[in-house]
């Protein structure tokens, strides 16, 4: 499978948008402009983008407490994401969801589920609806290494396996669940080893190489679309920031963080394609400028948007 230059550049821009979105959010958060807490994903762009770029328009993704990059990579306009983080009425959840629940089903992403592992059965169920309704679509289900220890992971993958559901289980193994190193809480070496227990293919790949992720996801997606059932894809990656707003990350060694900084997916892409000529310094600058402008507009939109009324708390509980 050869990727066109356009596709490669689209993936690059999407990664840059993810990264700069997170950086912008971090700075707004530190300025006290965003309420609540945030879990950010700087460093995990290749995984979000590689997976989402391999999807079709009416496919669905499910996400986690760390959903910003999934949402950006899925193509939800950043202004609606930003407005949600600002707790505005124009946000993708009308201000009712917040950082941990961003998403827009109409645009291919269910609201993120902040109960670790809680989204995995939902993904299988959504895939069941695709299968039943004979739609040609699949679900990409994002979750972390830590989530692979929770009951719903095992129950959902087993069901998806026995019913050949059109879903790809995407484990972003960033080595830690909060402060807990995955090798302290999992006896097998790889999350993908667990696929064998359910009789489905499992594969561990470099989650910081966007093209590797894209190709693996295309393959798993094709398999799911053909009715051959789910795949468990494990993407090895790393978050270059803390677990949440207030985490200095003292449980990780400086050496380890430095090692992973060298594997930064965006810097890697740039290094490769500056050499190969797809990218030039000028082009990088142009792309970054356009991303910056998109983000500035998003922030302006969010800041200018009205807040919800207090009483709006009461709506949307039932079909009114």
């Amino acid at each position: 499978m050869n990727l066109t230059p356009e596709k490669k550049l689209a993936m690059y821009r999407s990664m840059v948008l993810c990264r700069m979105f997170e950086e912008q959010v971090n700075s707004l958060f530190l300025q006290g402009k965003l309420p609540g807490t945030i879990h950010q994903a700087q460093g995990q762009e290749a995984s979000a983008v590689g997976v989402c770029q391999a999807l079709e328009e009416h496919d669905m993704i499910t996400s986690t407490h760390r959903p910003h990059e999934h949402a950006v990579a899925r193509g939800i306009p950043v202004k609606y994401l930003m407005a949600e983080l600002f707790a505005k009425k124009t946000g993708c959840c009308g201000g009712k969801g917040g950082s941990m629940h961003i998403g827009d089903a109409a645009l291919g992403m269910l609201p993120a589920i902040a109960i670790v592992g809680g989204g995995i059965p939902l993904a299988a169920g959504y895939a069941l609806s695709f299968q039943y309704l004979k739609k040609p679509n699949i679900v990409a289900c994002f979750f972390g290494d830590g989530a692979s220890n929770i009951g719903s992971f095992h129950e959902a993958i087993n069901m998806a396996a026995i019913w050949d559901l059109p879903v790809v289980f995407v484990c972003e193994n960033n080595k830690y669940g909060a402060s807990t190193a995955i090798d302290q809480v999992m006896k097998v070496k790889r999350v993908s080893d667990r696929a064998a227990a359910y009789g489905i293919p499992g594969q561990t790949i470099d989650g910081n190489e966007v093209e590797i992720v894209y190709r693996a996801m295309r393959e798993a997606a094709a398999r799911a679309r053909e009715g051959k059932g789910p795949t468990l894809l494990e993407l090895e990656t790393y978050r270059l920031v803390g677990h949440s707003r207030s985490d200095p990350g003292h449980y990780r060694s400086k050496e380890e963080v430095a090692e992973w900084k060298k594997r930064d997916p965006i810097a890697r892409f740039e290094a490769t394609y500056l050499t190969e000529g797809l990218l030039t310094d000028d082009l990088i600058r142009t792309i970054r400028l356009s991303v910056e402008q998109e983000l500035n507009e998003a922030v302006a939109f969010a800041e200018a948007s009205p807040a919800p009324l207090p009483e709006e708390c009461l709506t949307d509980v039932f079909n009114e």
């Binding site: 201000g95 009712k96 629940h101 919800p308 207090p310």
Partner: peptide, 16 residues
């Protein structure tokens, strides 16, 4: 609290 889930926006949460 009213019979709703807990909303995110502080304006609504304070109402809740």
């Amino acid at each position: 609290a009213p019979d709703t889930p807990v909303p995110f926006a502080p304006i609504m949460e304070n109402f809740y």
